[in-house]
Computed example of a mutant assay.
Amino acid sequence: MEFIQNFLQQSITFFAIMDPIGVSAIALSLLNENITKTQMNMIAKRSSLTIVIAFFVVLISGDLILKIFSISEDSLKVMGGIVLILMAISMVNGKDKEKTRNESKNDTELAFIPIGIPIAFGAGLFTTIIIFKSQAANLVDLVSISFAFCINALIFYIVLKNSIYIKKYLGITGQNIVTKLMGLIVGAIAVQFIVSGVVHLTNSYL
């Protein structure tokens, strides 16, 4: 029961921060207007593979990062929460993530950078993964985190692959509404991180 509860919380958190529908809209603005379905499928595969590799790199090295910089879990929660709040405000206000097109790169190269990193996998996911890793008590918790992210990576792939059709049916307004809703969820998660971190830090110094 606890495994399912943690898995659902992690899945919703990853989904809200990743915002696949919002990212797909940004991706289309970066790519060639005449991009084909086959090319879009290839870009979706490469971007999804990029974020999965980035996830496991952060998951494996998370403890090392905390030890090197002598950062406590609670301090990371507070700082991570602040990062997520800034991200949530940007999403609610309708400000896009980074979307600078490098004309010297072809569309398949853009799948790795910037679509994979840092648009889909940015600072928000980075800090959230480290926080979840620091909270993991055993191997089952790590499996839950990994499974939750991989499910979202699959959703990201499906959404990005079909982004041309999603844009057609939802339109810019629909995509913006979804992003704003995700922003509210990210903001609520950020507040939980900050409150939890501040409470534990306060108790440790009293």
Rank of each mutant, 00 (worst) to 15 (best):
M79H: 10
L139W: 14
I131F: 05
I130P: 03
D107Q: 09
G94Q: 12
A120Q: 02
L110F: 05
L160T: 01
S90H: 05
E109F: 04
L110P: 11
F132G: 03
A123K: 02
I129E: 05
R101G: 06
F156M: 00
N106F: 10
S134N: 07
T128P: 02
G81M: 10
E109W: 05
V143H: 07
E109S: 13
N93E: 14
I131R: 10
I82H: 01
A153Q: 03
L154P: 00
I130C: 03
N152P: 02
F147T: 12
P114Y: 06
K99T: 10
I129N: 09
K99I: 13
L110C: 04
T127C: 12
I89S: 06
S104R: 10
I130Y: 03
N162E: 10
V92I: 15
F112V: 15
K97T: 07
S104P: 01
S144E: 14
M79S: 15
V143R: 10
S146V: 08
D141T: 08
K133L: 09
G80Y: 07
A120R: 01
M87K: 02
G124S: 01
R101Y: 11
I89Q: 06
S146R: 08
I131D: 10
T100D: 13
T128C: 02
V78D: 07
F126Y: 12
V159D: 00
N106D: 15
I82V: 14
M91L: 11
F121G: 00
L125M: 07
I85L: 11
F126E: 05
F132C: 08
M79I: 15
G80P: 05
N138W: 10
K95E: 15
L76M: 09
I158V: 10
A111G: 07
S104K: 15
V83R: 02
V92T: 13
I129C: 07
D141I: 02
T108I: 15
M87F: 06
N93I: 03
P114A: 07
K95A: 09
S134G: 04
K95T: 12
E103C: 02
G81P: 09
T100I: 12
R101K: 15
L139I: 15
T100Y: 09
F121V: 08
K77A: 11
M87C: 02
L125G: 02
V78M: 11
C150Q: 04
D141S: 13
K105M: 13
A148I: 07
A120F: 04
N106R: 12
S146A: 13
L84K: 04
I129Q: 05
L142Q: 13
V159H: 00
L84P: 01
F126R: 01
C150W: 01
A88L: 01
K105C: 07
T108A: 13
K95H: 14
D141R: 08
K161I: 02
K77G: 12
K161E: 04
I158H: 00
S104D: 13
L154H: 00
K95W: 07
R101L: 11
I113Y: 09
T127Y: 12
A136G: 08
